[in-house]
Design a protein around this nucleic acid. Sequence first.
DNA 1: TATTTCAATAATGTATGCAATTATACGCTG
DNA 2: CAGCGTATAATTGCATACATTATTGAAATA
Lengths: 229, 229
Amino acid sequence: MKSIKNVSEKNISLTDQVHKELRHSIITGEMPGGTRLVESTLASEMEVSRTPVREALHKLELEGLLYSIPRAGYIVEEMSEHDIRDLFKTRKAVEQIAAKWAVEYITPEELQTLNKNLDMSEEIFRTGQIGKMAEFDTKFHKVIYKAARSKSLYQICKTLGDHTLKYRIALIDLPEMARRTIDDHKRIYQALFEKDSEELDKAVQHHMEQAKVNIIDLMERLRHESFMP
Amino acid sequence: MKSIKNVSEKNISLTDQVHKELRHSIITGEMPGGTRLVESTLASEMEVSRTPVREALHKLELEGLLYSIPRAGYIVEEMSEHDIRDLFKTRKAVEQIAAKWAVEYITPEELQTLNKNLDMSEEIFRTGQIGKMAEFDTKFHKVIYKAARSKSLYQICKTLGDHTLKYRIALIDLPEMARRTIDDHKRIYQALFEKDSEELDKAVQHHMEQAKVNIIDLMERLRHESFMP
DNA sequence: TATTTCAATAATGTATGCAATTATACGCTG
DNA sequence: CAGCGTATAATTGCATACATTATTGAAATA
């Protein structure tokens, strides 16, 4: 791992930089579940002292991305299929609420932001830069969270979204998944635009349901591949 | 503030002890919104070094109970009426989900736990130990969260519950509030017992609605009192 | 040879010192 | 007298040294 200090953006604390870096590594799957993290090792790799690393690890623990064994170390949280099902069940319920509230408050500007997001997603899909899809996926949903006009719900949605991001990144790289995601988003956008609550609810439900099934499938496939590489 | 070390339970880190202590002070309103917290001051008051205090403050910040001004200090989060309305709106929605799921999974043992909780609440109410009411209120709801059988939803409910606890403590001390809370809980229990989802949804909604209104009223009253003490 | 004990090692928990930055108070100047 | 600038104090950010604990491996003994 390369030093953080060299690429340090000024005015951001080392703790936050380390946190962001580690978070990225976990979410992208660079550090898969079960990976053990050691303060001093990370500190020397990143060329900072243990203090900011330690604080970053604590943050990640509270976010549920790591768990700590009292005087032993930190392990990257590993999700079972059951945990993933649970996560998506909750996410589905919460996103339905967010969408329901968003219908009422969303502005024409926000609708346009969503529309632009769809256009750019299509562009990215056509030009084959699928690596950027996850980012647009996240942004699309965030616009809706914000449109729900609830600070507390926004926080919840963001946390749940983060927890699924790891899997979404792995999945959305597959062209057919990217295609379906864009189509789902278009349907959600259309329902929001027409303020059709009933259709919106169904669209969100379908989107989440599909995401869940795809991830479970992916895990299944990976499990088989690991037996016969 | 008294030293922590003297009452230290073994095997729990100082950081966690400090965290718990400060958390309690904030949630009970002993440190009201706007209070400024300083690492070194707290450290000497509690007779520990700055490190565990610092880490505890960071935790509280992530939990949303404090916010920090970069190199200036920590301030106890102050909730506006708008924030409280928002919090309860979200809490209502989420607790409705929890209740809906709980109907399906709750066991006879858990129902009995709820029933016992009601009995003890009545006992406490009769004997006038109203100070203990908030604790039983929290426990009652936690049983339902758990019965929903969702790790992620449980986490969300607990966090939201914590954020409202400060106000619940102030309120539930009033006998008429305690009375209403117990009656609401009885209604919720009854609906769970009979697995009547529709009635349960209404009961939870009513309970949350009432809690919200009461807190807004309380804040209004306190605001007037502060003008003419 | 197997088991137990003890020491070395490695990790986090805690304390403390220094650096960097911001707020504040005081004095100076117009 | 007011406003601005500078110096100083206050406070967190970061680094590091020390304490405590858990694990591992080796050696000694049965």
